[in-house]
Design a protein around this nucleic acid. Structure first.
Lengths: 214, 214
DNA sequence: ACGATCAACTAAACGATGTTAACATGAACG
DNA sequence: CGTTCATGTTAACATCGTTTAGTTGATCGT
């Protein structure tokens, strides 16, 4: 299913060429508006050739999206060096929204479309630990930061459940991004800039969470 | 395009039968997993017959969704009788989430899928005033309530832009619903109940917005 | 030098989808 | 009684993802 090149020195593998072209097309037109024939045509291949390297369209999409998300997750990971947990939380939110606005089509795939249960994952059941999907890492970082806020007494006493608070925050930033992607250019209401909205939202939320009203 | 019945007394119009069956099927399986042939078959009709009453699948979906949303909008409208604007805001949020959780497929269509610019709307340009789409009404109600909160001095002075605040709130509740719909049964993270999450979220947000910290 | 092997690809089709064009039918009516 | 027209049906079309059966050309053992 994944043939090896004879001469790895010369040029990119066909598999990589497929991935590159798909990334380009998907990001520009969105997955459902890119046909396998389109994709094959831009690589000057036959549609069937793609199926030598990917089980089906869904598998191709999955691999692409996981790649991009890994870089996103890495970018978020760099924010782990911020000492103050509350400040870190804010920066996480901003980075999240910035990613969603910059790569709306990737974002839609990751967070706005129900993922049909991956056939391989269903049979494979247990995944290698620590090797988990990148979205888990990002979520773990969020949870850890929230937990740190709780442990250092930055939050009001009613916020003890880190998962609960993390999901609240996630819902907020996701909501801003998702609404902007879906209805961003609906003319019937004047949208505020998503970055401004999320900035104000995070600020407000933090004040609601914090124990010290300035 | 929309033929009239000869004997309106006898039984429901074919058009209505299509709508009813479509509503049932769409709500159960989701739009993209219901084919025109499926739909026609349950009415004991030929697929082509549907096209006597609806221009295409998208038009059928639009009409269905607009209907359901009108009832939702009406339900929200009943909350307008709540005197206290802050309390009204909270109830609006809860009703919103309850709708999204109860009718996930309708919600996805309304708020989670980009609407291709309606051909009729593009040529028709101006719609009859007051006859606007129901989502506008719901949004107007939200905006008005926020404005009332601002006018009666319930919010901190930095929140003067009603549209901005309304979109913050909308983003929050939408985020809770949308995440739940898309990742609600992903096993890798333990989701809190959406109603609990949104309750806590609204409470937190309100404390962040309000001028008086209790 | 040569036949066998096999990765890498193509040609052609299949089944499902939304949609349309051409034809049937049967009640209503002058 | 013949015309009209609403209301269907039958059969096809184009497009989609995908599969099956071949083709090709480099590589390799002998």
């Amino acid at each position: 299913m994944t043939p090896r090149r004879r001469d790895p020195a010369r040029g990119p593998t066909t598999r990589q060429r497929i991935l590159e072209a798909a990334r380009e097309l998907f990001a520009r037109r969105g997955v459902e508006r890119v046909t396998m024939r389109d994709l094959a045509h831009t690589i000057r291949l036959t549609p069937a050739a793609i199926y030598l390297y990917f089980r089906d369209k869904a598998a191709l999409i999955r691999e692409l999206v996981e790649n991009d998300f890994r870089t996103f997750s890495g970018r978020l990971g760099r924010l782990a060096r911020i000492a103050d947990p509350v400040e870190r939380l804010q920066e996480l939110g901003h980075a999240y929204v910035e990613f969603g606005i910059s790569y709306p089509n990737h974002y839609r795939l990751l967070f706005m479309t129900p993922h049909p249960p991956d056939a391989a994952a269903v049979v494979g059941a247990a995944v290698a630990p620590g090797q988990g999907r990148p979205e888990e890492d990002a979520y773990a970082l969020l949870m850890a930061t929230v937990q740190e806020c709780i442990d250092t007494g930055r939050f009001r006493p009613e916020y003890q459940n880190a998962a609960q608070v993390a999901q609240m925050i996630w819902a907020c930033v996701h909501g801003v991004v998702a609404l902007h992607i879906v209805m961003g250019d609906d003319p019937w209401l004047t949208w505020q800039s998503p970055t401004r909205t999320v900035a104000m939202l995070i600020e407000t939320l933090e004040r609601g969470l914090s124990v010290t009203p300035p």
